[in-house]
């Protein structure tokens, strides 16, 4: 499970120019949580997550929406990508910071939140 979560982060940060990204990263993260749920029960998985899944969805949407704003304040249209510096990382190559990464983080949280919410709800129904 920790391995899956770590892998999901790797997918997230290598996203922009290589295969990966927020969407698939979020799904992998949700798989990790779901695996924990299958092994130890849904209540344990909920405790592991600490926050209710709808909160993840809300936070993710908020981050994604806010990532469009910096461009706006620099006189560029909404959602214009702004890039900052970059740091080399071990697995994901050069990690570039910028608003698109922020947007991807938002997508990651939304996807993970929705998937986990769906899985929890269906699992608890039985």
């Amino acid at each position: 499970m920790p391995l899956q979560l770590a892998f999901s982060i790797v997918l997230l940060v290598r996203g922009h120019n290589e295969p990966g990204g927020g969407f698939i990263g979020g799904l992998v993260a949700a798989c990790g949580i779901a695996l924990h749920g299958i092994a130890f029960g849904i209540p344990a998985a909920r405790r592991l997550l600490r926050v209710p899944p709808p909160m993840l969805i809300g936070t993710g949407l908020l981050i994604a929406a806010l990532s469009g704003l910096p461009g706006l304040f620099q006189g560029q249209p909404f959602l214009t990508g702004l890039w900052g510096g970059s740091v080399p990382t071990l697995l994901a190559g050069q990690l570039k910071f910028g608003t698109p990464l922020l947007f991807d983080v938002g997508v990651y949280l939304v996807v993970a939140g929705i998937a986990v919410h769906l899985i929890f709800t269906m699992a608890e129904d039985q």
């Binding site: 209710p52 969805i57 809300g58 949407l61 908020l62 909404f78």
Partner: peptide, 24 residues
């Protein structure tokens, strides 16, 4: 003004997000 065109989309989106975060 560019902001005027984006606001009618941003406002309901951010409101929806705020409603979700307001939760219970």
């Amino acid at each position: 003004m560019k902001l005027a065109l984006v606001l009618p989309l941003l406002v309901p989106l951010l409101t929806a997000v705020a409603c979700i975060l307001a939760g219970a």
